[in-house]
Design a protein around this nucleic acid. Structure first.
Lengths: 202, 202
DNA sequence: CCACCAAGACGAGACGAACCGTCTTGACAA
DNA sequence: TTGTCAAGACGGTTCGTCTCGTCTTGGTGG
């Protein structure tokens, strides 16, 4: 019987120059025109690249953007982790305030929102989005909460996974829905309320 | 100087028959083909209506869907409110379990997800989405929490607005990101953790 | 009370523009 | 020699606007 294998391109012969130009062009364009008006044709034109070169290596414009964004964020965050001064409330407030500021920066906002939106619509992309961008973020929170457990500031039986969802879920909800401002005030109140749920049982 | 007013259509002469047919057709089609493949042309064809009739009354396909969904949900939910048996933990678990089931139903999921996605991408639509669909839902939670305050089960100084965000944010995050299953188990653990944060201070 | 009429929404679909994703060409690099 | 590359032609969709002729409706004059 005839093989139905789709001929996969030869990765070893891929042009690094074109790859970089494509990722760069998509980040620029998504900031300029927004995600819905972002077009494969425009990316190719801006990058000085044939359309086929994009279609050969990526399944969708969202996938291009995910690669582009991952490249930027890689190693920049997540490396340092969350500071541990011994005061978990202060540490969490510091990080959540910084996150609030980051999400108020348009240069970060536009592509990240585009990815979040595309992920909500496309289950396949969502798996990649969560695994490559969200999970690493969760891990640093879990690490800090675990340290808090060992310091006796946090219930040792707490489900740390669920705890990060309680801490970050309301934050993401506000941001995605634009149902409220991402102020330092909000970050502080959220951390305070979450820590009341995380505290060791009396 | 010449007026630049866009001629607004005459509402009093609007065809109720066509309006209903359009809303009905969009709900049917979004379930059949999904939101991204939902097309104004297809809605018009299914509804037996000219395209112009849709463009005349709605700014986007998302706006059509929001009207269609609002019409269905109107008065169906939100009327009853959250049961008050005196046991706030049990009551919240009941409602959140029911919500989890609702979000697992494809007939509800498809159009609602479409609206959530479109809202995340479009600030103007988001304002309508939050106000017409999400706010009414929040209000019934706030009412039940307020009753809990009066019953002495909940901290009287609690910010009830923030409380609903803590309760529902993690739920929405899981659902939108598909970062975990919306089980009864999850609903119960979430309510339990939230109530620890809501409890009166010792 | 009713016949008439002008205004405007209606169904249908033609129209050009934008993008889609595929395919072809000739250059070039491994 | 083989396969990617830039460039762009190609047919197919859907867009949003527009132009028809029809139908509905509210106001007017007999």
């Amino acid at each position: 019987m005839p093989s139905t294998t789709a001929k996969t391109p030869d990765v070893s012969r891929r042009s690094e120059r074109s790859r970089k130009a494509i990722l760069r062009a998509s980040m620029e364009l998504v900031g300029e025109v927004g995600y819905t008006k972002l077009t494969i044709e425009a990316i190719a034109a801006r990058a000085g690249v044939g359309k086929q070169t994009i279609y050969r290596w990526w399944p969708s414009k969202a996938a291009v953007l995910l690669d582009a964004f991952t490249e930027v964020v890689r190693s920049e965050d997540y490396q340092a982790g969350i500071p541990d001064t011994g005061d978990i409330e202060a540490d969490l407030k510091t990080v959540l305030r910084a996150t609030a500021d980051e999400f108020s920066d348009a240069a970060f906002e536009a592509p990240y929102r585009a990815l979040a939106v595309a992920s909500a619509a496309d289950a396949e992309l969502a798996e990649q989005f969560v695994r490559r961008l969200q999970e690493p973020g969760l891990e640093v929170y879990i690490a800090r909460l675990r340290a808090g457990q060992q310091a006796g500031q946090i219930d040792p039986d707490l489900d740390l996974r669920l705890a990060t969802e309680v801490l970050l879920g309301p934050f993401q909800q506000r941001w995605l829905n634009r149902s409220g401002p991402l102020t330092h005030e909000f970050a502080d109140r959220l951390v305070e309320m979450a820590l009341r749920a995380f505290a060791p049982r009396a």
